[in-house]
Simulated assay, not measured.
Amino acid sequence: MSATVTYLFDPLCGWCYGASPVIEKLAQHNGIHLVLAPTGLFAGSGHRMDAAFAEFAWSNDQRIARLTGQRFTEAYRENVLGRHGSPFDSSAMTLALTAVALTEPLREREVLKALQKARYVDGLDTGNAQVVGDLLRQMGLDLVADQVAAADLALLERNASRLQQARRLMRSLGAQGVPGLVVHTASGHRLLGGNALYGEVDQLLEQIANTCGNRAS
């Protein structure tokens, strides 16, 4: 099987974090070309953490943990959800991922995974641009960190274009949120909903193969 698959996500999405083990296995499968497409769902939202949202998020996170086995630690609960007034905004992370895609494209998935671990396991507020920059430097991505800090017009325009492209794809397929996978074939595109990302990777690969076969027929 050979297929190009676009992964629609937001780095602040807990369900996307829950899907990351399957995404990792999918990306390592021969014949699958995985394209990361951040949607900016929580970028520039203007939302700030408060007690009600923190309670809702933690309850949701526990559902994700039970379904996927992904960890949401007390450090995350206390230092991220407990920081009332802090922005719930994926702008810095999304910009960092775009900068990585432009300069170190083979490391973009690694950076996304590191950002998710930093938040949900280590309890670091990755909505904070300084935290994101520090993490990039710890990964040896000093140039990327400098680009994100400078946020020059070229990077901002490329980031905006990337988000617009992902959103257009979502609208065209009727996607209501993230995560989602889009399978591309010569005759069109097919959306696989988020539920496809919480089972076994073999089942997901079978869905992708069937989609390619159906589209090709």
Rank of each mutant, 00 (worst) to 15 (best):
V178Q: 00
V35T: 11
R83Q: 12
Y76L: 12
K117A: 14
G188C: 07
T4M: 12
E110Q: 11
R107Q: 07
Q62D: 07
N79K: 13
M49I: 07
L197D: 01
I64S: 03
V182R: 01
L81H: 02
S172Q: 10
L156Y: 08
D142I: 14
W15S: 01
L169R: 11
G44E: 10
M1A: 13
S161V: 00
L156K: 07
R107L: 06
L169Q: 11
A118Y: 01
V178G: 01
Q164M: 09
Y198A: 03
S91T: 12
V131S: 03
G46I: 04
F72V: 03
H47I: 15
A57D: 00
R137M: 15
H189T: 14
R168W: 12
T6C: 11
S86T: 04
G127Q: 03
L67W: 00
A54T: 02
L153W: 06
A154S: 11
V100K: 00
A114F: 03
V144T: 15
A129E: 08
G46Q: 06
D122R: 09
T185D: 09
V100R: 01
T185A: 10
A149K: 14
E24F: 08
G46N: 05
L197V: 00
D134E: 05
R77V: 04
L197N: 02
L95T: 03
P87L: 07
C13Y: 01
F42C: 09
S161L: 04
D152G: 09
I23G: 00
P105Y: 07
H84M: 11
M1G: 14
D142Q: 15
F88V: 04
K117R: 15
Q70P: 09
R168C: 15
H29V: 10
A51V: 12
M170N: 01
V5S: 07
V121E: 08
S86E: 06
S217F: 09
F42S: 05
R71P: 12
